[in-house]
Design a protein around this nucleic acid. Structure first.
Lengths: 211, 211
DNA sequence: CCTACCGATCGGTAGG
DNA sequence: CCTACCGATCGGTAGG
């Protein structure tokens, strides 16, 4: 009956080992992301999450005041990680806009489909379940995300490489990519397999109009 | 206790008025679609649905064996209606592929956003909640839907108007359109308003490469 | 289609 | 972080 506690290794440490300070909370967020993605927010119980990290059913409430707060933590973590990866694409300021765009697209596919990248799909598909008061906070982060894309798309439009209103283009392109969360599987029948590099290249080919 | 009445439309019909034969079932499907779309399948109770059509909480089970069967009916109705509208676009065989494509796109936006068109969004966002046994039936209809799009996209690709693998193009284009279910509102601040005609035109501009 | 109801589940809490 | 538990909700059913 016990697959449980995980003795604190440190001397007087209460819950944090020196090597991994307070990673129980992080465990909960990561596992919750995976389960929410698989079964949805409503389809996942606190008990599911607790047991998946070796806790009893009441214990997650020691780390989170409510199930909704855990949902918000998942989304926040997703945007934090996503922003980091996305901003990294812009580090090289000498890159032509078209090349920068190709990397943004590839990065977004990674954010959706890399192993352990369950946070953003949860945000996309369980947005409805997030209480309004938490939404504001997440929207703030999401706006910074969008702004990065918008700058590059505006450039492409100015260069004549993008033939649609840049704001709508952003919504449509991110829509096309994000929707892959509903159909893309890393391991389909080997024959039909498309990897993320190929998928990204095809996305670029679809929307960029060479001059 | 099989819940399978279906009033015979004939002489001794029990609950059906002459003007509206057996429209209680249809009422349930329509109202369920709206509520599922707004609050999700798990976020909507049978009581919500029953009360919205003026029934008591147990009565929907006179028409549907389970909540899941009601969900399937919603999706089935959506695909039936969607297939009808989509096939209608193909009626004029003389239309050039590009024009046919433009109409397919516009039709799909209508299917997502016209008043009362809540069925397909439910399919898109609550697919996870449909039991596997029902999925097969819905997938069959969905495949016919996809096939219509695929034929037109294959033509566009052959004509050099579409610069991506046609199968991936279908997934990406329908993704871009379908994702509008998450952000498009018919009545935003009047200034930023985009109507469905404009949205469709911009989508075509984004992906078609004029030769 | 209604009344009356049940069994199970679930988020959350008290107290240690 | 665990034990033990509660109140509410919910899908579904019996019987008319």
């Amino acid at each position: 009956m016990s697959a449980r506690p995980r003795t604190p290794a440190g001397v007087g440490a209460k819950r944090a080992t020196p090597e991994a300070p307070d990673n129980r909370r992080a465990d909960l967020v990561r596992v919750a992301a995976r389960l929410f993605r698989e079964k949805g927010f409503d389809g996942t119980t606190i008990r599911d999450i607790a047991h998946a990290v070796g806790m009893r059913s009441g214990s997650p409430f020691y780390h989170f005041a409510s199930k909704h707060e855990l949902l918000m933590a998942v989304m926040e973590e997703g945007l934090r990680l996503g922003l980091e990866r996305t901003q990294h694409v812009l580090a090289d300021a000498t890159l032509p806009a078209a090349e920068r765009f190709a990397r943004l697209v590839r990065t977004q596919y990674g954010i959706l489909h890399d192993t352990g990248s369950d946070f953003i799909p949860v945000m996309l598909y369980d947005w409805r379940s997030l209480p309004a008061q938490y939404k504001r906070r997440i929207i703030e982060l999401k706006d910074r995300y969008d702004a990065i894309w918008q700058r590059t798309l505006d450039e492409l439009h100015a260069q004549g490489l993008l033939r649609a209103d840049p704001r709508l283009a952003r919504l449509m392109i991110l829509g096309a990519i994000n929707f892959s969360a509903t159909w893309y599987r890393a391991k389909p029948r080997a024959a039909t397999r498309v990897d993320l590099d190929e998928l990204a290249a095809q996305t670029v080919a679809l929307v960029l109009h060479p001059v």
